[in-house]
Write a protein that binds this DNA or RNA. Structure first.
Length: 266
DNA sequence: AAGAAAATCAACCGCGATTTC
DNA sequence: GGAAATCGCGGTTGATTTTCT
């Protein structure tokens, strides 16, 4: 597909925003709301491309932004979230009210990353770094599952209505069996020391629901699970509340959808 | 005090995903 | 169903500020 350039006009302004441009943008959004970034510059009388306006608003002009240094609590939360989510800055930002993905990304690259490099000794940061590496591998696994992974059945911790635990099942190159009697299928890829477990608990009147667990050898460890398996080979991956990364009264956090056939996030 | 080096961060760029026609 | 338009994300750049020598 041939994409049109973001800014067709050669005369759009670039570089730092002036106070007047900021005022125009704020006034326009206050009056008309966010959105329609493509047409906004013209409507607002700005010689900027829509992308630039959106970025300026989101990263700098939004009234709910929290300015100033990151607190130790925010710092720790960023490290924790990054260990699970990797460079999903927008998702990390969604857990830190008033902070933008750009701000967090910059903070990570200039502060936290340096600490991780400077402090390779065992400790919390190293543990998070180790976890992050594994998550990276989870995000970019080999394209074909069976040739790199071994798949075996393990005892289910969630086999209440689904028959006896530990029932094994063979799988094919297409990936995972969706037989409802299989409590858990464990997938391991030895070289990255990562495990995925997928279970199919019985939920009345619903399609099979998968539970996937990505676990690292302790410490630290975390787990992910999926629900609402759609096509029998993937599901929405969520962080459960046990990891301390969720808001009070929040039971899980969706971090994306993982396709077990292609072994890719999607 | 001045120049160099390092650190910071706002903004840009390219691309994939999603929506619209 | 496919092409075009738009949105949003993550990586990178470069101007500015701060620190060091």
């Amino acid at each position: 597909m041939v994409r049109s350039p973001c800014c067709e006009k050669d005369h759009t302004n670039k570089g730092a925003w002036t106070k007047e441009e900021d005022q125009r943008l704020v006034a326009y959004i206050n009056a008309h709301g966010e959105g329609s970034w493509r047409s906004l510059p013209k409507s607002a009388g700005l010689n900027r491309c829509g992308k630039s306006c959106r970025l300026r608003w989101i990263n700098y002009l939004r009234p709910d932004l929290k300015r100033g240094n990151f607190t130790p609590q925010e710092d720790q939360l960023i490290v924790s979230l990054h260990s699970v989510l990797g460079n999903k800055w927008s998702m990390i930002a969604s857990r830190l009210p008033g902070r933008t993905d750009n701000e967090i990304k910059n903070y990570w690259n200039t502060h936290i990353k340096r600490k991780l490099v400077a402090n390779p000794a065992p400790g919390p940061l190293l543990n998070h770094s180790t976890t992050a590496t594994a998550v990276k591998n989870l995000e970019e696994p080999p394209p074909v599952l069976p040739s790199e992974y071994s798949i075996q059945a393990v005892e289910s911790s969630n086999s209440g209505g689904g028959g006896g635990g530990g029932v094994s099942s063979s799988t094919t190159t297409s990936g995972l069996s969706t037989e409802e009697h299989i409590p858990v299928v464990q997938i391991t890829q030895p070289e990255i020391n990562l495990e995925l477990s997928i279970g199919l608990p019985v939920v009345p009147d619903q399609k099979p629901v998968a539970v996937a667990v990505a676990a690292l050898p302790p410490p630290p460890s975390f787990s992910l699970y999926t629900d609402k398996i759609g096509d029998g080979c993937g599901g929405t991956v969520r962080i459960s509340e046990e990891h301390g990364l969720l808001y009070p009264n929040e039971h899980s956090l969706s971090i994306g959808r993982f396709d077990f056939l292609s072994s890719r996030w999607r």
